[in-house]
Amino acid sequence: MLGSLCSVSAQSGAIVSTDKDSTQDIQFRFQPQINSEPLKLGRSYYISGLEDSVSIEKLKFYIAELTLYNAEMTHVHISPATFLIDMEDSASLQRSCAIPKGVSYQKLSFSLGLDSAIQCSGAKGGELDPTRGMYWSWQSGYINLKLEGTSNSCPARNHLIQYHIGGFQSPYNTRQSLVFEYDHSPSILITMDLNKLLTEKNITENFQIMSPNQKAMDFAKNLPDLFRIGP
């Protein structure tokens, strides 16, 4: 699906208009949740299934290639923006982009993580600046998703759970594409259900993933399941 989407958009080109009369803003709100509540960093949550508490200290991830398109794929709008969603910066959870008016978009897609063109072309600024703590120093590449927390069930030193999920080169290309139905709403809530991540296996066995490898791939493949449109 993504392959054909990319080829269509490459032919028709991204429509980037700044004309206020012909565009409308749509709002994206990213809301990570635990136990169906909006996540608060540093707060302890009891996770049934794990039968223990977990506290998340850090959650950051890259969203790129936000794309809207109609069913026939004749109208495709790709936002050129790359968003670093960071729980420590509440403003980063609310994003907007201008889209052409009068088109009946029916699907929304975005990628979780960055493509190889960004990863291979040198130093970048803004949300991609390496000072943002999302670039590896010992090996080139961005961390697509960083999640850190603690749980007494985690056998690591200081019970620290550390997921730095990245890698863009085959066979460890961890970037994920997500596609959703879209209902024309100008305000879109994107929920991230962290309970699906806080499984017993992840906390007691796979609690530390910090380089591009098979474990990171397996972890990344499960990430799209966490996201949904709506509460």
Binding site: Q119, C120, S121, G122, A123, P130, T131, G133, Y135, S137, W138, Q139, S140, G141
Partner: peptide, 24 residues
């Protein structure tokens, strides 16, 4: 390990046995 000259200096800068610093 490093794919671009721009990003190379991050490696010695951050290595605990070299400069032991971070770019931020």
């Amino acid at each position: 390990a490093v794919n671009h000259l721009d990003m190379q200096s991050l490696a010695p800068l951050s290595h605990p046995s070299e400069m032991g610093e971070n770019i931020k």
